[in-house]
Amino acid sequence: MWKKIFAWLEERLGLNDLQKSLLERPEPKGNWWNTLGSASLFLFILQGFTGIFLTVYYTPSPDHAYDSVQYIMSGVAFGWLVRGIHHWGATLMVIVVFIHMLRVFATASFKYPRELTWIIGVGLLVATLGMGFTGYLLPWNQRAYWATTVGTQIAGTVPLIGEFILKTLRGGPDLSALTLQRFFAGHIWMLPLVLAGLIGAHLYLIIRHGESHWPKKED
């Protein structure tokens, strides 16, 4: 019975081919350092799920942001767990993505034909840091407020267009409701969209080229 259903689906979807090319593709001799990309992907998905769950209660408004986070932490069942995973997952993701970059650099995996994979990877690192920067403001506590004040101020030191960048980031000259709202929009819509797109391209290139082998003495 199940075999028949599976055969019917397989004939139309061709999932076996997909599995062979995605999950059972040949790999060079295993090395734990080569798993950091998958770890980053896992963390991205984890952050996506916990983030979506947080928006069930979180309210991006100066009147409610702080209180809604307090409510998640102490009022909702397992709110502390969901936010805890999102909070520590964010830190871990930055670390893992960064070590992943170091490994690719150390093993010279960015060379021909994988230059584009590396360039897209740089975009992924920047977008990940952007997620960290925008997410940091959302609890709307003192630390968040002043970290964003300082962060946007630093962006404002760019010659000539500094003030324009600062105003664009803050949605005006000062940190306000507009800042919180646009950081929220960036954090849950724009940056995740950018990340998902870049991850798709990154994965396509990895599957297309396969993984680079660990460099030998002669290399």
């Binding site: 799920f49 769950f53 069930v56 909702v76 069942a77 397992f78 709110g79 767990l81 969901v82 995973i85």
Partner: peptide
């Protein structure tokens, strides 16, 4: 261990 708490998290106000 993550899925079950997530469900509790969602339905908590109804309880």
């Amino acid at each position: 261990s993550v899925g079950l708490p997530s469900i509790a998290y969602l339905i908590d106000p109804a309880l």
